[in-house]
Amino acid sequence: MVEAALSRPENLPVGPVGRDGVGWWGVGTLIVTEGALFGYLLFAYFYTGATAPTGWLLETTPSLKLALPNTLLLLLSSLVAWQAERGILRRRRSQALVGFGLVFLMGAIFVAVQWLEWRSKSYGLGTSSYASLYFVTTGFHIAHVIVGLLILIALFSWTALDFFSPRRRLVVSAGVFYWHFVDIVWLLVFSTYYLTPYLGFGQ
């Protein structure tokens, strides 16, 4: 094997090509550790809820009026982000620019609606352990969305500068991957705080 490798070396890509590069693995490790962080936040919710006396849940039927459309908006933004990435893959720069701009807008609306949602609550951060968990968990998520928005600004600008091609675009794929992750995490946070009470958890 050694002789073969040395006498007939293969033609190799130089630097990251497509998604293949150490940077892709790097963003993967970031997502594992961040996913674990949200896992512990949800563990804190379920553990505290499961060991608390009745009446712990401050909202037995959380209102879905803002939260459900907002959730759908965020999930939809993942599809748009995917299309923006495909714009780079197909050398359609305008598709990518419109896509990143649209995702940014959807993310910003999500943050604004979440702010309204917070304002509409009858309890605050210090009301009880439930309230503390609610605001800190959704707050952690909002912080991640805001980081995602900053990443989108960077991707938009770099695309406008014509940095990328289907071959050299790992940073685009990594940024979009992160955005998908932020959306999937929201689905879990939303299900935990808004749906499990309807299933009877914490009642």
Binding site: T33, E34, A36, L41, T48, L125, G126, S129, S132, V136
Partner: peptide, 30 residues
Amino acid sequence: VVPAVSLAFFLLWMDRQFGTHFFDPAGGGQ
């Protein structure tokens, strides 16, 4: 596992400085 301890210390700091109740039984904490 490092996020578990980072989170625990962050929540403790919140309890101490911002009146949350993660670990405080008086506020329903555990």
